[in-house]
Design a protein around this nucleic acid. Structure first.
Lengths: 340, 340
DNA sequence: TTTGCATGAGAAAACGTTTTCTCCGGGATT
DNA sequence: AATCCCGGAGAAAACGTTTTCTCATGCAAA
């Protein structure tokens, strides 16, 4: 008897059974710690399975159990700014459960989205996580009638679904309160387009913290806008701000660079806070940016566990879940610590 | 007869067969355009399959055909700098063939890598693409004894395997030749650590183009290094360069920012070329960077097609394949066009 | 009429598991 | 001595496809 498996190809449970001198049923039960048998038999089968390098075929298993231990992550975020940390969280949370993740980047192409969804469904994914780059926009594909659970992250979900997003208001509060606490009084807010839900949330929190009179400048999500806004402020009349709260790190970077060029010191003269904590931007700015982190990885982790729960039929409360942000302090604000 | 599928759960080929009043064999043959039957029967079965929303179970299909139409992309590139474009290419090339991609980010953790590989093999992936962030380094997991084909991209492969990487020398040549063509003569090269294969390749090409006396400054892959290097050059004695070829876009950005701060105009006084064409850096620099694009997406596409070919048993020539780079002209060099 | 052959369609095996059911033997209880 | 039950193990069905046979029919050729 050939221990390397009789028939050509991968080695199956039949090979293990033959090598151990038991039936495949006993082998299966031995390996899965189910059924009844002597401890010796179980141990022997397990040992032999290890020796011959048996690897159960998930296709066969899935066919029977109707669980593929596979989920799909659908995204239209081209730069991966959101997707990558999210994906890392999802994967990290699910790998322990033996679940692998299909990543499907569908630009903004409905047809491509449809194809990917179709492919995933044929492959019997246990669930799908739909992720985008803004919370007030839908993916260009209808996920409402799918035979598998769908969880939304950073994108607008169907009514009755589970949606995850960061708590923009709380994050903005964190930033502005920090500026206030280190003694800043004239804080302006340079941010993105006001048709973004997140932008309005953050601006709202900004106003709530500083009370009444604040200045919010809406623009684009680009360094150039940070640049332009600072130029506009400092070339104008009147008292200058002593702090800037920016809608994202790119704007913040543009602002910081422009201040430096104007000879205005950051953080001595002006404190700057960013949003996103995008390492590649925040960490490379001179000085490195204090920024609000949206905890995307944690968000991914929770989205992963949620879709898994749904897949297993466990009850999950529908609705929008907002996760708290965290302030990452670097050197663009000055101030030592919240307790001075 | 219930047209929505008799037994509970997803609708199977049995349901289609019943609805069409034929056997499942006939149904299968009708849908796959195999076997013999009247055109009417075939058309009717197809129509009904569409009507009831039949979706073949890829698990069952894969069990039989020993093809899962699934591949794995293994990467240790945390920032996704390389992974994302690569993934986009792989996915784009394979979606047409019905293949979906598992993305597995294994930081630099051998245990995690092992777990992911194991999970993918159980799921019967048809092949694996291993990708890294430097061509002279291996992933922290042994892929040499796998029962499925492995293709390497931007990472060191086993002898006898297929490996894809960009043509660093050609890319560097493109950059330096461009600078020469627009009239620059005193070109320095500010780049990364010289223990990177790519760094040495590019420096070699730089020397080859400008002939003999060139200045190469090795450092870190960071903006701060670009900054520091420019400071060092311009605060020193002697004639200043009229062009800088940088090892990546971050270094280039640091250099451009520092030049601007020193009142040196880019591109009028000094031309700067980057490497990577990382949109988020190159596009946001003032002025936007001319940069060498490594065509990662195309590289991903070819890697995907290659692993597919191997999975299907088609012959593939082993060895290292280098893909040409492309120069993306923005505004950091001046000069109108190659033909002046 | 018999033979041959093309056409249309179904039965059944196979893929690699898991799970339910059945069987057998032996020690403990009546 | 008859009964019960339990521990140990295997047989077989099931999951949803694809594919290889086999079969029945009808028509043309001998």
């Amino acid at each position: 008897m050939n221990i390397a498996g009789g028939k050509r190809g991968r080695i199956t449970i039949h090979d293990v059974a033959a090598a151990a001198g038991v039936s495949i049923s006993t082998t299966s039960k031995a390996l899965n710690d189910t059924g009844r048998m002597s401890v010796e038999t179980r141990a022997r089968v397990k040992r032999i399975a290890g020796e011959v390098g048996f690897r159960p075929n998930a296709l066969a298993r899935g066919l029977l159990s109707k669980r593929s231990f596979t989920i799909g992550l659908l995204t239209n975020d081209t730069y991966g700014r959101f997707t990558l940390p999210l994906m890392a969280g999802v994967s990290e949370a699910l790998v322990d459960h033996g679940v692998s993740v299909f990543l499907c980047a569908i630009e903004d192409d409905p047809a491509l989205g449809q194809i990917h969804v179709e492919a995933m469904l044929e492959k019997q994914v246990d669930g799908i996580i739909a992720s985008g780059k803004r919370v007030d926009g839908q993916l260009p594909v209808d996920l409402s009638k799918l035979p598998v659970p769908v969880v939304y992250a950073f994108t607008e979900g169907e009514p009755g679904s589970v949606t995850f997003r960061s708590d923009d208001a709380q994050g903005a509060r964190l930033a502005v309160e920090w500026l206030v606490r280190i003694g800043r009084r004239r804080i302006v807010h340079i941010t993105g387009p006001d048709d973004f839900f997140s932008v309005r949330e953050r601006a709202g929190a900004y106003h709530a913290v500083i009370g009444g009179e604040g200045v919010v400048m809406y623009g684009r999500w680009a360094e150039a806008w940070g640049h332009e806004a600072v130029e506009r402020i400092w070339s104008g009349e009147g008292e200058k701000p002593d702090a800037i709260f920016c809608g994202n790190d790119q704007i913040a970077r543009g602002a910081v660079d422009t201040l430096r060029e104007r000879g205005i010191r950051v953080p001595e003269d002006v404190s700057v806070v960013g949003f996103d904590n995008w390492e590649i931007v925040a960490g490379q700015t001179r000085p490195p940016l204090t920024s609000v982190d949206m905890e995307l990885k944690e968000l991914g982790r929770q989205a992963g566990l949620t879709v898994l729960a749904l897949a297993e039929g466990r009850p999950v409360e529908p609705g929008v879940r907002t996760l708290p942000c965290r302030l990452v302090v670097r050197q663009s604000c000055g101030g030592k610590s919240p307790i001075e």
